[in-house]
Design a binder for these strands. Structure first.
Length: 284
DNA sequence: AATTCACTCAACCGCGCTTTG
DNA sequence: ACAAAGCGCGGTTGAGTGAAT
């Protein structure tokens, strides 16, 4: 939705010194002022920066605009499957520590990740009628969502196997391979489903789901190892977003929209919903 | 064509922590 | 040691958009 957004109305207040303070959407002129000033003077000291740049904005507002929107290395557009997977993993580790999660996702801001969680992940939780922070939901994510993301990543990384693709809504990894949690909710086998395309197993490395073929360390997707020494490598060699998705000629947003299609409005298929309900029954 | 609804995301707010004087 | 200012973080809001009716 970032495309062609018409600016909201701007309100003008007065600060305690009686100076004008603008609020609301930033104009192109304001953006340029901020960029120019930071380019020549650097960032930090946001309140004085706002004044010396001639911006009628709070320092906070300038900082936010710069960090979340104007900074040159910011990636725009939808999150790739491997980024989604990383968010799920890191959130399971750290909870709502958005800035900490963002540190491991170059080009992505805490705000963007937070928005993704609220709009996409919490939506899935609502569909299951559970709290997104509940154990049940996290289990369901681990059981169904993450393997599917891995599957998607695998598909994207190996164009030759595209014939064996499965549609988003069709149950791919579920019925035969996924361990059905008939009795008690069992974490053990959860981490070793088999990817249907390759027969490749998913391994768990220091609590992280990762395809067995990927190295546990060495090359780190996020560019930054975890503090505890672990790392999670989902850098897919040769993955070219535009090429793999057949997005040539599309705008960035169109391309990402195509990418997102497999996800659909409801992630869970009926089989998975059924299994989830069984989990709930066992639990009560 | 008009209206409603759900969704996205930029921007704001409040709070707590850190730095500075 | 203390207060004030600055900063960063997580939570929330609301306008714009497109799809559905």
């Amino acid at each position: 939705m970032s495309k062609g957004r018409i600016p909201k109305s701007v309100s003008i207040n007065l600060d305690q010194d009686g100076n004008e303070l603008r609020r609301g959407p930033w104009t192109l002129e304001e953006d340029n002022l901020l960029i120019q000033h930071i380019t020549s003077h650097g960032e930090g000291q946001w309140n004085s920066l706002a004044k010396s740049a001639g911006l009628k904005r709070t320092g906070k507002s300038c900082r936010l605009r710069w960090l979340n929107y104007l900074k040159p290395d910011i990636k725009r557009g939808n999150l790739a499957p491997h980024e989604q997977l990383l968010i799920l993993e890191l959130h399971s580790r750290w909870g709502n520590r958005w800035s900490k999660i963002a540190q491991h996702m170059p080009g992505r801001t805490d705000n963007e990740i937070k928005n993704y969680w609220r709009t996409r992940v919490q939506k899935q939780a609502r569909q299951l009628k559970v709290d997104s922070n509940s154990k049940k939901f996290l289990e369901a994510v681990r059981l169904y969502w993450m393997p599917r993301l891995l599957e998607k990543i695998e598909q994207d990384s190996s164009p030759s196997s595209s014939a064996a693709t499965s549609s988003p809504s069709s149950s791919s990894i579920t019925t035969s391979e996924t361990p059905k949690p008939a009795a008690a909710p069992p974490p053990p086998q959860i981490n070793r489903p088999v990817l249907p395309n390759s027969g490749e197993e998913i391994q768990e490395i220091s609590g992280f789901l990762t395809p067995a073929g990927l190295e546990p360390c060495g090359k780190i997707f996020c560019g930054k190892p975890f503090e505890d020494g672990g790392c999670y490598h989902v850098d897919i060699p040769g993955y070219d977003h535009v090429q793999e998705l057949g997005c040539e000629g599309m705008s960035m947003s169109e391309c990402h929209a195509a990418d997102d299609d497999w996800f659909g409005s409801c992630f869970w298929n009926s089989d998975e919903l059924w299994q989830f309900r069984k989990l709930e029954e066992v639990d009560v």
